[in-house]
Design a binder for these strands. Structure first.
Length: 526
RNA sequence: GGCGGCGUAGCUCAGUUGGUUAGAGCAGCGGAUUCAUAAGCCGCUUGUCGGGGGUUCGAAUCCCUCCGCCGCUACCA
């Protein structure tokens, strides 16, 4: 099965912050999970570059737009790579493939009769890159950009007949209850569309940076009509029709809750007009807010508030895995979350250092100390005692469902509460460190069970903490039985046949190095 | 103004077809241990379940009202 997943494309007028990263990680977990389940995943990300703000930002630096956006794209990709985002493609909307596809698409909609030209006079906000209706204006200013003057602009623009699609959209929501998720977002969109849709302006006059309208070169395509098309131009619409047909429609668009209306109303209407299938699902995730460590105040993340946290700050100090773990375990993906260094350190120390990392350390240490790392005869030993009363099959089924529904925080909570706790408790009840003094055979049974726990944990955390998962899997010679790249969630259920186990983890002075050194915020200077 | 959501232990939250002494994680405290990153395990403490009223044998859970916060949206000006 193919699985096509996308994230929103970002404005490259400033570097990505942790809120942007939240979205990419959430999409990445889904992509990695689907790959484990055997799907042919295509995971797309990109930057939205055909905006006036971008060309202005370039101008400020004395650059042409293209070199500017290319450099920003490089910086974005660097951050995503550092966060272990496994995207298969990264589209820049200034690329030729996007331009070609856009021209084809807008022509198709034009030919379908859903685009018309209309003169429009209104107050234009350069900050929003949008006309403001009277009711949106407060004290003669745009509330979002109170420092800027609104300009009175009159021009002829092309409009998309969005209003004509309301009934079809509502019918689609009705027929596909999962189209918009989570539920709360769906309700908002339904009431929005029921209230009536207005036709939208889709072009601007007099700009050279952007995509010219094919049937009127004086106009360029306006941001949303252009940006949304990245989802199809990236996979060959207009340039490689065969590839496009085999990849589209998307299985899920992962986006921020603020742009659900564009993805759930405008975008489907555009596709309907062009005669293309609609994406199967749109997931509007929540926002990350910044909680001030001193005052406890919770704020939106914004440059002007000076509370921006760059992903690289956290990655450099505390690792990418720590970053991923924090956001996936502490912030419900469909709802809002908050970030503070204090909470980060708590979650990291409790979940990664004390629990996950420590289980790894104590297990390997004992294997090395009591058996020189070689568990001879392990293949004949049943490795399921550590599970005690845990129904692994039911757990795995539940996790698959929850990850599929983007309930990552709940899935992680269960892995910790049910699997990791079971393993730690097993050590305590069997006391291998005492057993080793009197009964090495019995001790070996315990170690084989713990190795199995390590293997199961590795599999279950693979979509979330790919690096740690791999380290866990390579702690023993599990790859002799089954290559890591082929491991899926079903492999957690039973140990595959293979040679006797031995420790293959990297050791420092005969001991495993701590995977997650504890965080001391004061020492870290955070 | 309309629609919707939220307000539960110090912190983050679970918990609604109403029903035994309201739960989890984190933090805190105590205990027994020592393989381990002074981690892990066992045990413990705290809650007017936002305020008030009502329905009921019985409400965190249903109804009314008030307060506070948030999302979407309308209109007036």
């Amino acid at each position: 099965m193919g699985f096509y997943i996308t994230t929103a494309i970002d404005y490259p007028n400033s570097r990505p912050h942790i809120g942007t990263a939240f979205e990419k990680i959430g999409a990445d977990v889904q992509a990695r999970f689907r790959r484990m389940e055997g799907d042919a995943v295509h995971f797309l990300m990109g930057n939205d570059e055909n905006t006036i703000k971008v060309s202005q930002a370039a101008e400020k630096l004395g650059l042409e737009p293209k070199p500017y956006v290319d450099d920003m794209a490089r910086q974005f990709r660097e951050v995503w790579a550092a966060l272990e985002i496994s995207n298969d493609d990264f589209i820049q909307t200034s690329e030729e493939r996007h331009h070609v596809g856009c021209r084809k698409f807008i022509q198709a909609v034009y030919d379908a009769g859903d685009i018309y030209k209309k003169s429009y006079t209104g107050l234009y906000c350069d900050g929003c890159e949008a006309f403001k209706t009277d009711k949106e204006i407060v004290d003669g200013r745009c509330p979002n950009h109170p420092n800027r003057e609104l300009r009175r602009v009159e021009e002829e623009n092309y409009f998309f007949r969005l209003s004509a699609f309301a009934d079809r959209l509502l019918a689609h929501y009705e027929a596909h209850p999962d189209f918009i998720q989570p539920e709360s977002r769906r309700n908002e969109i339904v009431s929005l569309v029921k209230a009536g849709l207005l036709d939208v302006s889709i072009s601007r006059k007099g700009f050279t940076w952007g995509i010219p309208v094919p049937f009127d070169p004086d106009q360029t395509i306006y941001v949303w009509f252009d940006a949304l098309l990245n989802y199809i131009t990236a996979i060959g619409y207009g340039t490689d029709e065969e590839r496009f047909r085999s990849t589209w429609p998307a299985d899920v668009h992962v986006i921020g809750k603020d742009i659900t209306r564009f993805h759930c109303a405008l975008w489907p209407a555009m596709l309907m007009s062009a005669g293309l299938p609609l994406p199967k699902r749109v997931f509007g995730h929540g926002f990350v807010y910044r909680k001030d460590e001193g005052t406890g105040e919770v704020q939106k993340i914004s440059k002007s508030l000076g509370n921006v946290v760059e992903p690289m700050d956290i990655i450099d100090k505390f690792s990418a895995e720590g970053f991923r773990h924090y956001f996936m375990s502490q912030c419900p993906f469909g709802g809002d979350g908050e970030f503070s260094f204090e909470r980060f350190a708590d979650a990291y120390n409790a979940g990664l250092a004390n629990n996950l990392g420590n289980l790894y350390s104590r297990t390997l240490s004992m294997c090395v100390k009591y058996f020189d790392g070689k568990l001879d005869g392990s293949s004949a030993i049943d490795p399921t005692a550590w599970l005690a009363g845990l129904d692994l099959g039911a757990l795995v089924e539940g996790l698959k469902r929850q990850i599929g529904a983007f309930e990552y925080n709940i899935a992680l909570q269960r892995i910790w509460a049910e699997v990791l706790d079971a393993a730690n408790r097993y050590i305590d009840t069997t006391r291998p460190f005492s057993l080793a003094k009197t009964d090495l055979e019995a001790t070996k049974v315990v170690m084989v069970n713990l190795a199995e726990a390590i293997r199961v944990v590795a599999i279950l955390i693979k979509p979330f903490l790919p690096e740690t998962a791999s380290t866990f899997y390579r702690a023993f010679n599990f790859e002799d039985a089954r290559p890591w790249a082929e491991v899926g969630y079903a492999d957690a259920l039973a140990r595959p046949a293979g040679p006797d186990l031995r420790v293959t983890a990297e050791l420092v002075g005969g001991k495993p190095a701590p995977l997650f050194p504890k965080i001391d915020l004061k020492a870290a200077g955070a």
